[in-house]
C-alpha cells in the first residue's frame, strides 16, 4: 500500500459517512511529507531547544562576566575570583579514588550516550522492517545505556556535592568541601548553580526518555505496533532520544571542554 494522500487513517469509519475529503484546501495536503505525530515531535523538540538554548545563553553570559584564570593549567587553584577550569573540577572516576583523571568519567558518559543513540536508530530501523524481536532487543539496549548514563550522572552529582578532601578556604576562613546552590569549593557560586541546573535538566530529559522507552518496549511486546501496521511511535520517541544526545553534545563542549 503506497502512501495515500489522506492524513486520517480511519476517519471514514464512524463520524464520516462520505469518504474523507483529500483536496488541497480540505487538509489533504502534506507539504512536509511527514506524519502529524512526527511533525509535532519536531516542533516540540524545537521548543525544547529554546529551553536549553536559554540555559546555554545564561551560561555564556555568566561565564564571560567572571574572570578567567590566566596562568598555566598546572598552577590552577580554586577561587571565587575566576571561573574554574573544567578538567580540574571533573577529574574523578568511580573506584579510583585520589587519582587525577581529568574528564575520564565524562568521556565514559559521552560514549555511553552515543552508544544509546546508535541502538535507538537500530530499533527504528528494525521497526521499518517490522522485525518485532529486533525492535525489542535494541530498545532494551537503549534502556540499559540510558540507565547507565543517569546512574553515572547520579555518581557525578554525589561527587560534586561532597567535594574533595582538601576543600577550599572560603572568604570567612573556613574550609568548604563540595558544592550547594549558594557555596562551592570550585569557584563562583553560579558555577555550581549552572552545573546543577543544566546537567539536572538534561538528566531529567534522559529519565523521561527512559520512561517512554520502557513504555515502547511494553507496547512492542504486546504487539500494539504490529497490529497498528507500523512502528512510527518508536521513530517519534527516537527523535526525542537523539535530541537528548544532541543536547549532551553541547553540554559536553560548553561545560566540560571549553
Amino acid at each position: 500500500m503506497a502512501h495515500s494522500t489522506t492524513l486520517q487513517p480511519n476517519a471514514a469509519s464512524a463520524a464520516y459517512v462520505d469518504a474523507p475529503r483529500t483536496g488541497t484546501w480540505d487538509g489533504g495536503n502534506e507539504p512536509f511529507k511527514a506524519s502529524y505525530g512526527k511533525l509535532m515531535m519536531w516542533f516540540f523538540l524545537l521548543s525544547d531547544a529554546f529551553t536549553f538554548g536559554a540555559f546555554l545563553t545564561a551560561y555564556g553570559l555568566i561565564r564571560h562576566k567572571h574572570g578567567v584564570f590566566t596562568g598555566q593549567a598546572k598552577d590552577f587553584f580554586f577561587s571565587t575570583a575566576h571561573w574554574p577550569i573544567p578538567e580540574k573540577v571533573f577529574n574523578a572516576f568511580p573506584g579510583l579514588h585520589g587519582i587525577d583523571l581529568p574528564l575520564a568519567f565524562v568521556a565514559f558518559m559521552t560514549m555511553i550516550l552515543i552508544f544509546s543513540s546508535v541502538t535507538m536508530v537500530l530499533a527504528v530501523e528494525a521497526g521499518h522492517r517490522m522485525d518485532k524481536a529486533d525492535v525489542q532487543k535494541w530498545l532494551l539496549w537503549t534502556i540499559l545505556f540510558g540507565s547507565i548514563f543517569i546512574s553515572s550522572q547520579a555518581w557525578e552529582w554525589t561527587h560534586f556535592i561532597n567535594g574533595t578532601e582538601a576543600g577550599t578556604r572560603m572568604a570567612d576562613g573556613t574550609i568548604f568541601h563540595g558544592a550547594n546552590l549558594t557555596m562551592n569549593q570550585y569557584g563562583p557560586p553560579l558555577f555550581a548553580d549552572l552545573f546543577f541546573f543544566i546537567t539536572g535538566f538534561h538528566g531529567t530529559h534522559v529519565f523521561s526518555g527512559i520512561c517512554l522507552l520502557v513504555w515502547c518496549f511494553i507496547a512492542t511486546t504486546n504487539g500494539t505496533f504490529e497490529k497498528r501496521g507500523h512502528y512510527e511511535m518508536i521513530e517519534k520517541i527516537g527523535l526525542y532520544w537523539h535530541f537528548v544526545d544532541l543536547v549532551w553534545v553541547f553540554v559536553f563542549t560548553f561545560f566540560y571542554l571549553v
Binding site: L46, A49, G53, T57, A58, L61, I62, H64, K65
Partner: peptide, 21 residues
C-alpha cells in the same frame, strides 16, 4: 532557521557578558 537565531542570541549575550564583567 529558528535554531540559527538561537545561535545569534548566544553570541550576543556572550559578548554582553564580557562587557558586564
Amino acid at each position: 532557521v529558528p535554531t540559527a537565531l538561537l545561535v545569534w542570541l548566544v553570541v550576543a549575550l556572550v559578548t554582553e557578558g564580557s562587557y558586564v564583567g
